[in-house]
Amino acid sequence: MKVKKLLIGLLVSGLALSFTGCGDNGTITKEGNKYHIFGQFVEIKKIRFRDPMTNMLIDEFFLYDTETKIVYVLLNGDVDSGITPYYVLDENGKPEIAIYGENYNG
Score class of each variant (00 low, 15 high):
R48C: 15
G21A: 12
G23L: 01
L7G: 02
Y87E: 08
I47H: 09
G39H: 05
V42F: 00
I47Y: 04
T84G: 09
M56H: 06
Y35S: 07
F49H: 15
L74F: 15
F62S: 05
E60W: 04
G82V: 07
I28N: 05
G82K: 07
V73K: 07
T27E: 15
H36N: 10
F61T: 00
L89W: 00
G77K: 00
L10D: 05
K94D: 10
T20A: 06
N103H: 08
Y64N: 04
N105Q: 15
F62V: 04
V42R: 04
S81R: 12
T84Y: 09
N76F: 06
E102M: 02
V71A: 01
P95N: 06
T84R: 14
L6E: 13
G14K: 03
E96L: 13
N103Y: 06
G93Y: 12
Y35A: 09
T29M: 07
P52F: 13
K69L: 09
L6V: 11
R48W: 14
E43L: 03
K30E: 15
V3D: 15
L11E: 02
K2N: 08
K45E: 11
E91P: 00
G21H: 07
Y100E: 01
L63A: 02
Y35K: 10
Y64K: 01
D24A: 13
P95A: 09
N55Q: 13
C22G: 03
G21F: 06
Y35I: 13
L15M: 10
N76S: 13
L75H: 07
K5E: 10
E43M: 05
V79L: 11
N25C: 10
I28S: 06
I97K: 08
G26N: 03
V88S: 03
D59L: 04
G82W: 04
L17G: 05
T29N: 10
E102Q: 07
Y86R: 02
L7T: 08
M53L: 14
V79S: 07
I97H: 01
N25L: 09
T20E: 03
E31I: 00
N92P: 03
I8R: 04
F62E: 07
C22R: 05
G101W: 13
K2T: 12
K46S: 13
P52V: 14
N25I: 09
R50S: 07
E96I: 10
A98Q: 03
I47L: 08
D59Q: 13
I58G: 01
L6F: 08
I97L: 08
R50H: 12
M1V: 04
I99F: 00
G77H: 00
V42H: 05
L57A: 11
K5V: 07
F41H: 10
D90Q: 02
Y72K: 03
L10Q: 06
L74T: 00
E96F: 02
G82E: 07
V73M: 09
Q40I: 13
D51S: 14
P52H: 11
Y104E: 03
K34V: 12
P95Y: 12
S13F: 14
L7H: 03
D59I: 01
I83A: 09
G32M: 11
G32I: 09
G77L: 02
T68D: 12
G93V: 06
T29R: 10
F49Y: 15
Y104D: 08
G32W: 05
L10E: 05
S13T: 15
G21P: 05
N92R: 10
N55G: 02
